[in-house]
Design a protein around this nucleic acid. Structure first.
Length: 437
RNA sequence: GCGGUCAUAGCUCAGUUGGUUAGAGCACAAGAUUGUGAAUCUUGGGGUCGCGGGUUCGAGUCCCGUUGGCCGCCCCA
């Protein structure tokens, strides 16, 4: 066994693995491009303080962090959001609005690896800055859907659960809770799916038991799964803030429906996400059939840019990871197999013929064709076998007889037929052959 | 950080109540083969049996520890 092992939670990408990874990246990049998002990148290493400021000191336990030789406390990035906030914030006054940016980058988290979660992973991040209205949510959720639908996944494979922290705060306010209590209740709501009623025990210990009718209202609000039911409940409460917020919901749903994406959306107020920095809509993409963890997640974070010491800038964004996406595609049989085949494979008789072949090989390569040949002199039998196994459509045979006649034998590896081609016509003949094949 | 489970060749695995020099298939390489295809035959390389310790005359096999994979808990930006 090897003396040095790969670090836990890290992956190596052998050619087949990298081909699959690139396939995912290609689709994401394509989606972002068609939605008018500009790609950026940023440092892998950042000041530790950037993440502590955003998420609190406890975050350090989940980071790959160390002190560099200059005495700086630094960390490998665990996410892109604070970084992109800094990039955008630094030039906020000079950038055209809306600012629509995306990136594909590797992230590092010091956590125990398990299914769908590793210590090093890639994420596609997309954000819109400078647009406070729900139009930004429409655009971003549509992009999120395309980031999965681009692989052939349909509304039967995944859905986007839409929720809203503002709506919750207004609702809890209407029920008579103060801001501190509301935050704690949201923490409990986030855990109800796992813990059931026990999720509210911590709240009850601090603030006294929940009145049965309020508990029932909260549990009922969580179970809302349609815009109609939401409107009905808000109408029952009759509070102005809730009514106004319902208007934003109608716009988001209407917009996505007009994009023919309505069937991907699932109203689900049980999604609140643990992160305290989200300020409005939050959304997560889920596998509809399987038991995978969340495929993607995002939401609005209007206060974060300012919190990082930058201009006040509304923002909404999401991230989707390569690990769960890859698992889902494998499960659905939507991950293609990739073969790296040359267009042309050259069979070369000996050293003399090699010199002639090299000239043609380079000419074909300059014309953009993928050309391969045996590095060392081997028998014809082996070479023909290698040519067939390479996956090339055509073999060019450089034997002593051919060179003497000024021709190359062109073998159709599919049809197993051969013909002589004057070397002067080789480029044109190969081009026509490959174009016709 | 906690728990379960597994670890023999590049891959899939076999390996008897502990007993000689650890095997097979696939894959890879060479040859049969100095001009024609995934075949066949022959041959070869490749293992400190994850690592370390213990029991024993003797450990791939039993015991303890440890590292790593997988699964789950905590967490999940």
């Amino acid at each position: 066994m090897a003396t040095f092992q790969t670090l836990p939670g890290f992956r190596e990408f052998y050619p087949e693995d990298l081909a699959r990874r690139n396939h995912i990246f290609r689709r994401w990049r394509q989606a972002a491009g068609t939605y008018g998002f500009a790609e950026y990148d940023a440092p892998v290493l950042e000041p530790l303080e950037l993440y502590k400021t955003k998420s609190g000191d406890e975050i350090e336990g989940q980071l790959f962090n160390f002190t560099d030789k200059g005495g700086r406390e630094v960390a490998l990035r665990p996410e892109m959001t604070p970084t992109v906030c800094r990039l955008v914030g630094a030039k906020a006054n000079a950038l055209k609005r809306p600012i629509k940016w995306f990136s594909i980058a590797e992230f590092y988290r010091y956590e125990r690896a398990q299914k769908g979660r590793l210590r090093a992973f890639f994420q596609f991040n997309a954000d819109i800055f400078g647009e406070p209205g729900p139009e930004a949510e429409i655009e971003l959720i549509a992009l999120l859907i395309q980031c999965l639908a681009g692989f052939g996944l349909t509304k039967d494979d995944f859905c986007v659960r839409l929720s809203d922290r503002d709506l919750w705060f207004f609702y809890l306010e209407a029920l008579g809770f103060n801001d501190t209590q509301a935050r704690e209740l949201l923490g409990a709501i986030d855990k109800v799916e796992k813990l059931g009623d026990a999720a509210f025990e911590a709240f009850a210990e601090k603030h006294g038991p929940l009145a049965p009718e309020k508990m029932a209202a909260i549990l009922g609000f969580m179970k809302i799964r349609s815009l109609e039911a939401l409107a009905a409940e808000i109408g029952r409460i009759g509070q102005d803030k809730l009514e106004a917020r319902l208007g934003d919901w109608r716009r988001v749903i209407a917009g996505l429906t007009a994009m023919s994406l309505g069937e991907f959306i699932q109203v689900d107020l049980s999604v609140v996400r643990g992160l305290a920095y989200y300020t409005g809509f939050v959304f997560e993409a889920f596998d509809r059939k399987g038991d995978l963890r969340a495929l993607a997640g995002g939401g609005r974070y209007n206060d974060l840019v300012k919190k990082l010491g930058l201009p006040d800038l509304p923002a909404v964004g999401f991230a989707i990871g390569d690990v769960t996406t890859g698992l889902l595609l494998e499960q659905r049989g939507l991950m293609p197999t990739f073969v790296q085949a040359p267009d042309v494979y050259c069979v070369i008789g000996g050293e003399k013929e090699r010199a002639a072949a090299f000239g043609d090989i380079q000419a074909l390569r300059a014309a953009g064709y993928r050309v391969d040949y045996p590095l060392k002199e081997v028998g014809f039998g082996k070479q023909f076998k290698a040519a067939a196994e390479s996956g090339a459509k055509v073999a060019l045979i450089y034997g002593g007889d051919e060179i003497a006649k000024g021709v190359v034998k062109l073998r159709d590896l599919t049809e197993r037929s051969e013909r002589d081609v004057p070397r002067a016509d080789l480029l044109v003949t190969v081009r026509d052959f490959l174009a016709g094949a």
